[in-house]
Computed example of a mutant assay.
Amino acid sequence: MSAYPFNDLPVELPEAAVLMPFVDQPDPELILTVRAQGMPTHAGEVAFPGGKRDPGDRDLLHTALRESHEEVGLAQREVEVIGQLSPLASRFGMKVTPFVGVVRAGVDLTPEPGEIETIFQVPLSFFLEEEPELSPPIDFYGRRLCMPSYYYEDKRIWGLTAFMILDLINHVYDADVRFDLTGEK
């Protein structure tokens, strides 16, 4: 595996952070949520636990862990943080930084009813075996991107969530799913 090429996002936007929690088991599973229908942004969409940085947060990792505890009841002591991925811009004008963590199998999770409709898990092998559907290229914050979508059971995993998953599997597993066409003719 090559070294992870961290790419900062050279735009000034409000900051947010998410946790990409993996369940530690032979076929690791990624913990995802479906956001509540009443949420002001991303209502009903699949997302990682996370949210906007509060003024009292020490750093973005603290934001990701605090929000994960608030949204799904995942205590900080239950998470072994193993890395940070490159930040991405959301369509709502947020700079979102993902952190990758591992939690033990059987960890107790409870959705916060006002924010989270449901919590579910997807085997990592699903993302390694399934090719995402890619949209025609769009220009977004100076990059030329194809929007990825995965369909798992009755859920569509797309947008920033899918970009983060692809960033991880492209660099850890050399999946070579091409979604960033920046610089190509």
Results as ranks from 00 to 15, higher is better:
residue 37 Q to L: 12
residue 45 E to Y: 05
residue 33 T to Y: 02
residue 29 E to N: 08
residue 25 Q to D: 01
residue 30 L to M: 02
residue 56 G to K: 14
residue 24 D to P: 00
residue 31 I to M: 04
residue 54 D to H: 10
residue 24 D to E: 09
residue 24 D to Q: 08
residue 34 V to L: 06
residue 56 G to T: 15
residue 35 R to K: 14
residue 43 A to F: 04
residue 39 M to W: 07
residue 28 P to H: 14
residue 57 D to Q: 07
residue 52 K to H: 15
residue 34 V to G: 05
residue 47 A to C: 11
residue 26 P to T: 09
residue 28 P to K: 13
residue 40 P to F: 06
residue 48 F to D: 04
residue 38 G to M: 11
residue 43 A to T: 03
residue 27 D to Q: 09
residue 52 K to P: 11
residue 41 T to N: 00
residue 47 A to Q: 05
residue 55 P to I: 08
residue 49 P to E: 05
residue 32 L to V: 10
residue 39 M to T: 15
residue 47 A to G: 06
residue 44 G to E: 04
residue 45 E to W: 03
residue 48 F to N: 03
residue 26 P to C: 06
residue 26 P to R: 08
residue 35 R to Y: 05
residue 22 F to N: 11
residue 43 A to Y: 06
residue 24 D to T: 02
residue 33 T to A: 05
residue 57 D to H: 06
residue 44 G to S: 05
residue 51 G to E: 08
residue 34 V to T: 13
residue 46 V to Q: 11
residue 36 A to L: 03
residue 27 D to A: 15
residue 29 E to S: 12
residue 34 V to Q: 04
residue 25 Q to A: 13
residue 40 P to Q: 08
residue 25 Q to V: 13
residue 52 K to V: 15
residue 53 R to G: 04
residue 23 V to R: 06
residue 41 T to A: 01
residue 37 Q to E: 15
residue 37 Q to K: 14
residue 37 Q to C: 12
residue 42 H to Y: 01
residue 34 V to D: 01
residue 33 T to K: 09
residue 25 Q to H: 02
residue 52 K to N: 15
residue 24 D to W: 00
residue 47 A to H: 03
residue 27 D to P: 14
residue 28 P to E: 10
residue 43 A to S: 08
residue 35 R to L: 01
residue 28 P to M: 09
residue 46 V to H: 04
residue 31 I to K: 11
residue 22 F to P: 13
residue 31 I to V: 15
residue 46 V to D: 02
residue 42 H to M: 03
residue 47 A to T: 05
residue 51 G to K: 08
residue 57 D to G: 11
residue 39 M to L: 12
residue 42 H to T: 03
residue 36 A to C: 11
residue 41 T to R: 02
residue 35 R to E: 00
residue 49 P to T: 12
residue 42 H to S: 00
residue 55 P to F: 06
residue 43 A to N: 01
residue 27 D to K: 12
residue 38 G to H: 14
residue 40 P to H: 04
residue 30 L to I: 03
residue 39 M to I: 10
residue 40 P to E: 07
residue 24 D to A: 14
residue 57 D to E: 04
residue 46 V to T: 09
residue 39 M to D: 05
residue 43 A to G: 05
residue 53 R to T: 06
residue 41 T to K: 06
residue 56 G to L: 10
residue 47 A to I: 04
residue 44 G to V: 02
residue 46 V to M: 02
residue 56 G to W: 14
residue 45 E to R: 06
residue 23 V to P: 03
residue 57 D to S: 13
residue 29 E to Y: 04
residue 48 F to M: 06
residue 57 D to Y: 00
residue 55 P to A: 10
residue 45 E to H: 08
residue 52 K to Y: 13
residue 42 H to V: 01
residue 41 T to M: 10
residue 43 A to E: 07
residue 28 P to Q: 07
residue 26 P to Q: 13
residue 43 A to P: 03
residue 46 V to S: 08
residue 24 D to C: 06
residue 36 A to Q: 10
residue 23 V to Q: 04
residue 25 Q to P: 05
residue 37 Q to D: 15
residue 45 E to F: 04
residue 47 A to S: 11
residue 43 A to L: 05
residue 32 L to W: 02
residue 22 F to G: 09
residue 49 P to K: 11
residue 48 F to Q: 00
residue 56 G to N: 14
residue 37 Q to R: 15
residue 33 T to D: 02
residue 26 P to Y: 11
residue 25 Q to C: 10
residue 26 P to V: 09
residue 55 P to T: 02
residue 42 H to N: 09
residue 25 Q to I: 11
residue 49 P to H: 14
residue 47 A to W: 00
residue 54 D to V: 13
residue 38 G to S: 14
residue 54 D to E: 15
